[in-house]
Amino acid sequence: MAKLLNTSATNFVLENLISKARKHVVLISPYLKLNKRIKKLVEDAILRGVSFHIVYGKQELQEGEKNWLLSSTRIKLFFCDDLHAKCYLNEAYSIISSMNLYEFSQVNNYEMSILLSKKDDTDAYVDSVKEAERLIRMGQEQYQIPVLTETETETKTPLTPTYQQTTAQEQSRQTLKQPDSTKISTNLLASKYKTNAQRLLVSLRASGFISTENGRDELTEKSMDIGAELHESSAGHYFLWPADLNLHTMLSN
Protein backbone atom coordinates (compact mmCIF):
# COMPACT_ATOMS: atom_id res chain seq x y z
CA MET A 1 0.00 0.00 0.00
CA ALA A 2 1.25 3.50 -0.86
CA LYS A 3 2.73 5.44 2.06
CA LEU A 4 2.97 9.16 2.74
CA LEU A 5 6.46 10.38 3.73
CA ASN A 6 7.50 13.64 5.35
CA THR A 7 10.91 15.25 4.79
CA SER A 8 12.94 13.08 7.17
CA ALA A 9 11.15 9.92 6.06
CA THR A 10 11.78 10.80 2.42
CA ASN A 11 15.52 11.12 3.07
CA PHE A 12 15.58 7.86 5.03
CA VAL A 13 13.67 5.88 2.40
CA LEU A 14 15.70 7.41 -0.44
CA GLU A 15 18.94 6.27 1.21
CA ASN A 16 17.51 2.78 1.63
CA LEU A 17 16.33 2.77 -1.97
CA ILE A 18 19.94 3.33 -3.10
CA SER A 19 21.62 1.08 -0.52
CA LYS A 20 19.30 -1.87 -1.19
CA ALA A 21 19.22 -1.61 -4.98
CA ARG A 22 20.37 -4.78 -6.73
CA LYS A 23 20.50 -3.76 -10.38
CA HIS A 24 19.58 -0.18 -11.15
CA VAL A 25 18.53 3.17 -9.71
CA VAL A 26 16.83 6.10 -11.44
CA LEU A 27 17.11 9.56 -9.88
CA ILE A 28 15.06 12.37 -11.43
CA SER A 29 15.43 15.86 -9.96
CA PRO A 30 15.42 19.29 -11.64
CA TYR A 31 18.00 20.63 -9.17
CA LEU A 32 20.89 18.31 -8.45
CA LYS A 33 23.55 18.55 -5.76
CA LEU A 34 24.26 15.34 -3.89
CA ASN A 35 25.34 15.45 -0.26
CA LYS A 36 28.31 13.40 0.95
CA ARG A 37 26.15 10.64 2.38
CA ILE A 38 24.24 10.11 -0.88
CA LYS A 39 27.50 10.14 -2.85
CA LYS A 40 28.94 7.44 -0.60
CA LEU A 41 25.80 5.31 -1.05
CA VAL A 42 26.08 5.74 -4.82
CA GLU A 43 29.75 4.72 -4.76
CA ASP A 44 28.96 1.64 -2.66
CA ALA A 45 26.10 0.69 -5.00
CA ILE A 46 28.37 1.00 -8.03
CA LEU A 47 30.84 -1.37 -6.42
CA ARG A 48 27.97 -3.88 -6.13
CA GLY A 49 27.32 -3.55 -9.86
CA VAL A 50 24.33 -1.20 -9.67
CA SER A 51 23.84 1.17 -12.62
CA PHE A 52 22.37 4.69 -12.37
CA HIS A 53 20.30 6.84 -14.71
CA ILE A 54 20.19 10.41 -13.40
CA VAL A 55 18.04 13.13 -14.98
CA TYR A 56 18.25 16.83 -14.08
CA GLY A 57 16.65 19.92 -15.59
CA LYS A 58 18.50 23.03 -14.48
CA GLN A 59 21.69 24.24 -16.14
CA GLU A 60 23.08 25.41 -12.79
CA LEU A 61 24.67 21.99 -12.24
CA GLN A 62 28.09 22.75 -10.81
CA GLU A 63 31.11 21.64 -12.81
CA GLY A 64 32.51 19.63 -9.90
CA GLU A 65 29.19 17.85 -9.46
CA LYS A 66 29.00 17.02 -13.17
CA ASN A 67 32.60 15.78 -13.23
CA TRP A 68 31.90 13.46 -10.29
CA LEU A 69 28.75 12.09 -11.90
CA LEU A 70 30.54 11.42 -15.18
CA SER A 71 33.54 9.75 -13.57
CA SER A 72 31.88 6.31 -13.56
CA THR A 73 30.70 4.35 -16.60
CA ARG A 74 27.83 3.04 -14.44
CA ILE A 75 26.28 6.50 -14.23
CA LYS A 76 24.42 7.91 -17.22
CA LEU A 77 23.53 11.58 -16.83
CA PHE A 78 20.76 13.27 -18.81
CA PHE A 79 19.57 16.87 -19.12
CA CYS A 80 15.82 17.26 -19.69
CA ASP A 81 14.63 20.78 -20.45
CA ASP A 82 11.54 22.01 -18.54
CA LEU A 83 11.84 19.15 -16.04
CA HIS A 84 9.86 19.71 -12.85
CA ALA A 85 9.16 16.11 -11.75
CA LYS A 86 11.01 14.49 -8.84
CA CYS A 87 11.08 10.70 -8.82
CA TYR A 88 13.50 8.17 -7.33
CA LEU A 89 13.20 4.45 -7.99
CA ASN A 90 14.91 1.08 -8.03
CA GLU A 91 13.68 -2.35 -9.10
CA ALA A 92 11.34 -2.64 -6.08
CA TYR A 93 10.25 0.84 -4.96
CA SER A 94 9.43 4.26 -6.36
CA ILE A 95 9.30 7.61 -4.55
CA ILE A 96 7.18 10.37 -6.11
CA SER A 97 8.27 13.49 -4.29
CA SER A 98 8.22 17.28 -4.01
CA MET A 99 11.88 17.14 -2.90
CA ASN A 100 14.77 17.94 -5.22
CA LEU A 101 17.86 15.80 -4.83
CA TYR A 102 19.58 18.90 -3.58
CA GLU A 103 21.44 19.24 -0.32
CA PHE A 104 19.65 22.45 0.71
CA SER A 105 16.19 21.01 0.00
CA GLN A 106 16.92 17.83 1.95
CA VAL A 107 17.89 19.82 5.06
CA ASN A 108 15.84 23.02 5.04
CA ASN A 109 12.59 22.47 3.16
CA TYR A 110 9.31 20.88 4.21
CA GLU A 111 8.68 18.13 1.68
CA MET A 112 6.08 15.45 1.03
CA SER A 113 6.41 12.18 -0.88
CA ILE A 114 4.51 9.03 -1.82
CA LEU A 115 6.27 5.67 -1.60
CA LEU A 116 5.10 3.00 -4.05
CA SER A 117 5.96 -0.69 -3.87
CA LYS A 118 6.21 -2.89 -6.97
CA LYS A 119 4.70 -5.72 -4.94
CA ASP A 120 1.77 -3.87 -3.34
CA ASP A 121 1.19 -0.95 -5.75
CA THR A 122 2.03 -2.69 -9.01
CA ASP A 123 0.08 -0.51 -11.45
CA ALA A 124 1.20 2.79 -9.99
CA TYR A 125 4.80 1.57 -9.67
CA VAL A 126 4.88 0.38 -13.31
CA ASP A 127 3.40 3.70 -14.45
CA SER A 128 6.12 5.60 -12.57
CA VAL A 129 8.79 3.45 -14.25
CA LYS A 130 7.29 4.10 -17.69
CA GLU A 131 7.19 7.85 -17.08
CA ALA A 132 10.78 7.80 -15.79
CA GLU A 133 11.85 5.93 -18.94
CA ARG A 134 10.05 8.53 -21.06
CA LEU A 135 11.90 11.39 -19.35
CA ILE A 136 15.20 9.58 -19.89
CA ARG A 137 14.41 9.21 -23.61
CA MET A 138 13.52 12.90 -23.78
CA GLY A 139 16.74 13.90 -22.06
CA GLN A 140 20.05 14.68 -23.68
CA GLU A 141 22.85 12.45 -22.43
CA GLN A 142 25.74 14.41 -20.97
CA TYR A 143 29.38 13.71 -21.73
CA GLN A 144 32.55 15.14 -20.35
CA ILE A 145 34.97 15.83 -23.17
CA PRO A 146 38.25 16.76 -21.49
CA VAL A 147 40.78 19.16 -22.93
CA LEU A 148 43.91 17.02 -23.09
CA THR A 149 47.17 18.89 -22.90
CA GLU A 150 50.75 17.74 -22.53
CA THR A 151 51.13 19.73 -19.29
CA GLU A 152 47.76 18.98 -17.67
CA THR A 153 47.99 17.70 -14.09
CA GLU A 154 45.40 15.01 -13.43
CA THR A 155 44.13 14.76 -9.85
CA LYS A 156 40.70 13.28 -10.43
CA THR A 157 40.06 9.74 -9.22
CA PRO A 158 37.20 7.85 -10.90
CA LEU A 159 34.46 6.30 -8.77
CA THR A 160 35.20 2.74 -9.82
CA PRO A 161 37.92 0.94 -11.77
CA THR A 162 37.19 -0.51 -15.21
CA TYR A 163 38.84 -3.25 -17.19
CA GLN A 164 40.99 -0.50 -18.75
CA GLN A 165 42.29 0.68 -15.37
CA THR A 166 44.62 -2.02 -14.17
CA THR A 167 47.59 -2.00 -11.85
CA ALA A 168 51.03 -1.00 -13.07
CA GLN A 169 52.04 -4.66 -12.97
CA GLU A 170 49.12 -5.67 -15.17
CA GLN A 171 49.93 -2.83 -17.55
CA SER A 172 53.42 -4.21 -17.90
CA ARG A 173 52.09 -7.72 -18.60
CA GLN A 174 49.73 -6.34 -21.24
CA THR A 175 52.59 -4.43 -22.86
CA LEU A 176 54.67 -7.62 -23.05
CA LYS A 177 51.77 -9.45 -24.67
CA GLN A 178 51.19 -6.86 -27.35
CA PRO A 179 51.70 -8.43 -30.77
CA ASP A 180 52.65 -5.06 -32.19
CA SER A 181 55.20 -3.03 -30.25
CA THR A 182 53.97 0.15 -31.93
CA LYS A 183 50.63 -0.17 -30.09
CA ILE A 184 49.99 0.89 -26.50
CA SER A 185 47.13 0.32 -24.04
CA THR A 186 44.47 2.88 -23.14
CA ASN A 187 46.19 3.37 -19.78
CA LEU A 188 49.52 4.18 -21.40
CA LEU A 189 47.91 6.47 -23.96
CA ALA A 190 46.11 8.32 -21.18
CA SER A 191 49.33 8.60 -19.14
CA LYS A 192 51.07 10.13 -22.14
CA TYR A 193 48.58 12.99 -21.99
CA LYS A 194 48.63 13.28 -18.19
CA THR A 195 45.05 12.08 -17.72
CA ASN A 196 43.39 8.79 -16.68
CA ALA A 197 41.89 6.00 -18.77
CA GLN A 198 38.35 6.61 -17.52
CA ARG A 199 38.38 10.24 -18.58
CA LEU A 200 39.93 9.36 -21.94
CA LEU A 201 37.30 6.66 -22.59
CA VAL A 202 34.49 9.17 -22.02
CA SER A 203 36.04 11.43 -24.63
CA LEU A 204 36.54 8.55 -27.09
CA ARG A 205 32.88 7.52 -26.71
CA ALA A 206 31.64 11.06 -27.26
CA SER A 207 33.83 11.41 -30.37
CA GLY A 208 32.58 8.18 -31.91
CA PHE A 209 35.73 6.06 -31.52
CA ILE A 210 34.07 3.68 -29.04
CA SER A 211 30.49 2.43 -28.93
CA THR A 212 28.78 0.63 -26.06
CA GLU A 213 26.78 -2.52 -26.81
CA ASN A 214 25.03 -4.37 -23.98
CA GLY A 215 27.24 -2.67 -21.40
CA ARG A 216 30.48 -3.57 -23.23
CA ASP A 217 32.72 -1.05 -24.98
CA GLU A 218 33.57 -1.88 -28.60
CA LEU A 219 35.77 -0.24 -31.21
CA THR A 220 34.01 1.49 -34.10
CA GLU A 221 35.09 1.56 -37.74
CA LYS A 222 36.36 5.06 -37.07
CA SER A 223 38.84 3.81 -34.44
CA MET A 224 39.86 0.74 -36.45
CA ASP A 225 40.62 3.02 -39.41
CA ILE A 226 43.32 4.74 -37.34
CA GLY A 227 44.83 1.39 -36.29
CA ALA A 228 43.15 0.66 -32.95
CA GLU A 229 42.84 -3.01 -31.99
CA LEU A 230 40.70 -5.04 -29.57
CA HIS A 231 42.36 -7.89 -27.66
CA GLU A 232 40.95 -10.49 -25.27
CA SER A 233 42.63 -11.66 -22.07
CA SER A 234 41.66 -13.78 -19.07
CA ALA A 235 40.67 -10.56 -17.25
CA GLY A 236 38.49 -9.31 -20.10
CA HIS A 237 39.05 -7.33 -23.28
CA TYR A 238 41.19 -4.25 -23.79
CA PHE A 239 42.15 -1.84 -26.55
CA LEU A 240 45.50 -1.05 -28.14
CA TRP A 241 46.19 2.26 -29.86
CA PRO A 242 49.00 3.48 -32.15
CA ALA A 243 51.77 4.80 -29.93
CA ASP A 244 52.23 7.88 -32.14
CA LEU A 245 48.52 8.78 -32.04
CA ASN A 246 47.90 12.53 -31.75
CA LEU A 247 44.83 12.90 -29.53
CA HIS A 248 44.49 16.61 -30.17
CA THR A 249 44.05 16.03 -33.90
CA MET A 250 42.05 12.84 -33.44
CA LEU A 251 39.42 14.31 -31.07
CA SER A 252 39.02 17.54 -33.00
CA ASN A 253 38.09 15.78 -36.26
Rank of each mutant, 00 (worst) to 15 (best):
C87W: 04
N196A: 08
T186H: 09
K118Q: 06
V26A: 08
C87V: 10
N108M: 06
G139H: 00
N100T: 02
L32F: 13
H24L: 01
D120F: 09
I114W: 08
H24Y: 11
P161W: 03
T151M: 07
A132T: 14
S203E: 10
Y125I: 01
K86N: 12
T155W: 09
L5Y: 13
I136Q: 07
L115G: 06
K130E: 15
R37S: 07
T212G: 01
H24S: 08
F52P: 04
H237S: 11
S211L: 12
H53A: 01
P161D: 07
D225K: 08
T155C: 02
R199H: 15
N196K: 06
K183H: 15
R37E: 12
E91F: 00
T122H: 15
I136K: 03
A168N: 14
K222W: 04
L240Y: 15
D81Q: 11
L189P: 05
D44G: 01
Q142K: 11
V50N: 05
T73W: 06
R134F: 02
I96G: 08
I28W: 00
L251E: 02
A21V: 03
I145Q: 07
T10W: 02
M1Q: 10
N35K: 09
L188F: 03
K40D: 12
L116C: 10
L116Q: 11
L201W: 03
H53P: 00
E152L: 04
I226F: 11
T155V: 07
S181T: 11
T167W: 00
S128I: 09
T151P: 01
T157N: 08
K39W: 13
S113Q: 11
M99V: 03
S72W: 06
S72K: 06
S207I: 02
L176K: 15
Y93K: 15
E15C: 05
F12A: 11
L89E: 01
K3W: 05
L5Q: 13
Y125M: 04
D44W: 04
S105R: 05
E60Y: 12
E218W: 14
M1D: 07
G208R: 13
L32R: 06
S51T: 10
A9Y: 06
V42A: 03
I28A: 00
P30S: 08
L247I: 06
M224D: 04
S233D: 03
E229C: 06
E133V: 03
N187M: 11
S94E: 09
A92D: 13
N109C: 03
L69D: 03
R48H: 13
P161Y: 03
K118N: 09
K66G: 01
G208S: 14
D127N: 07
N214H: 12
K40L: 12
R216G: 01
L219A: 10
A197H: 07
A235P: 00
P242M: 07
D244T: 14
